[in-house]
Design a protein around this nucleic acid. Structure first.
Lengths: 198, 198
DNA sequence: GTCTATAACCCGATAGAC
DNA sequence: GTCTATCGGGTTATAGAC
């Protein structure tokens, strides 16, 4: 089972992706060179092309797999027929999922404009799919007469923006635990769609 | 009043800034070259250095003047001693101000990582100043016994993220007018901090 | 104030040796 | 599978003519 000199195909691939994710998040796709990624992995630039056809594919694969994971993880959640429970589940799921992978979330928002139009269209559709999950919950709550939401699409966008914003300030070693944060945001979400108010 | 050939100092400066703003917003700071900016303005690349010491200063000046304008515009608003009115004023002001300059808002969020550490610190402090304006309103509302907000700092971040999110989808020729959008968001904000709920 | 030309360097991607 | 070397092009910023 002697290996060719320097042959590490089984581990180098993921390491290329990890290095690209981290560097793209830190400096931005356009500012990161293939040579930088290679240095982080510990190979020469030419070797990267054994794992990706080009730099654009590297970015697209990172964003695509992030969106695929997001949708798959949500679908794997138990179904909640009661809208109020479904909304709480979505709120907590969104915060938890996004806070666990800040770099992937970051580039998924920041690097959309560096995708080719074809690649952008793919990611954009997956994003819309996710937004529709929340929109459907809001519509169900209106139908069940438990939410007051005149504009479900706008409201879904607003709530997702609010929840994703956790990533801009949350530190796991800060004053609030993630559980605390979930509770604070769930209180706001619940009230924002509620029927009664002062 | 004969001009030197090609002399347009009084108008070229703003045109350089406008071109940089537009191109940075479209393609990202790192992806835009000084040659591209020059071409947009209609001069050669070398001429840009009559208006900016380097590319970094161009970015910093755009972000700095955006934050200065934001704070100055907010301070120019009439004072509202009643917290509920102050919050409505902030909500509508934020949406209006940000929707009027989507490119400046966009680069102010996206290009922070391309600032030098010193420049970043300046912008970050201005951003914190603005966030504190909302936080103070929330604390006043709690003191006046009209808001229920356990975490004013977190809530301020959450509300700002939600309001800024308007820029990701709002089109002035869409189904909803900006006035409609303000109302939908103000309903959510008001309820999110309200004392009563279902 | 703008031009042309250039210094000094970096880029993505590929070819061919091992 | 990884290396070195390279192609053809790009970059920021400056120098000096006009």
């Amino acid at each position: 089972m002697a290996r060719t000199q320097g042959s590490h195909s089984d581990i180098t691939g993921p390491r290329v992706r990890d290095a690209a994710l981290s560097l793209f998040a830190q400096h931005g796709y356009a500012a990161v060179s293939m040579r930088q990624i290679a240095a982080e992995v510990g190979v020469q630039a030419g070797a990267l092309y054994n794992y990706t056809s080009d730099k654009q594919s590297l970015l697209f694969d990172l964003l695509k797999s992030h969106m695929d994971q997001l949708l798959a993880s949500w679908m794997a959640q138990p179904e909640a027929p009661v809208a109020m429970q479904a909304l709480e589940q979505f709120t907590r799921f969104h915060i938890r999922f996004h806070s666990e992978r800040p770099e992937a979330v970051f580039i998924s928002y920041m690097e959309l404009r560096n995708l080719t139009p074809e690649n952008f269209a793919v990611i954009e559709e997956l994003r819309k799919d996710y937004e529709t999950k929340l929109e459907d919950i809001l519509r169900a709550g209106v139908a069940q007469n438990v939410f007051s939401v005149r504009e479900p699409k706008v409201t879904a966008m607003a709530l997702i923006a609010m929840l994703t914003g956790v990533n801009t300030w949350f530190k796991s070693d800060g004053r609030l635990s993630l559980e605390d944060v979930e509770q604070v945001y769930w209180d706001m979400v619940r009230k924002a769609v509620s029927k009664r108010t002062d």
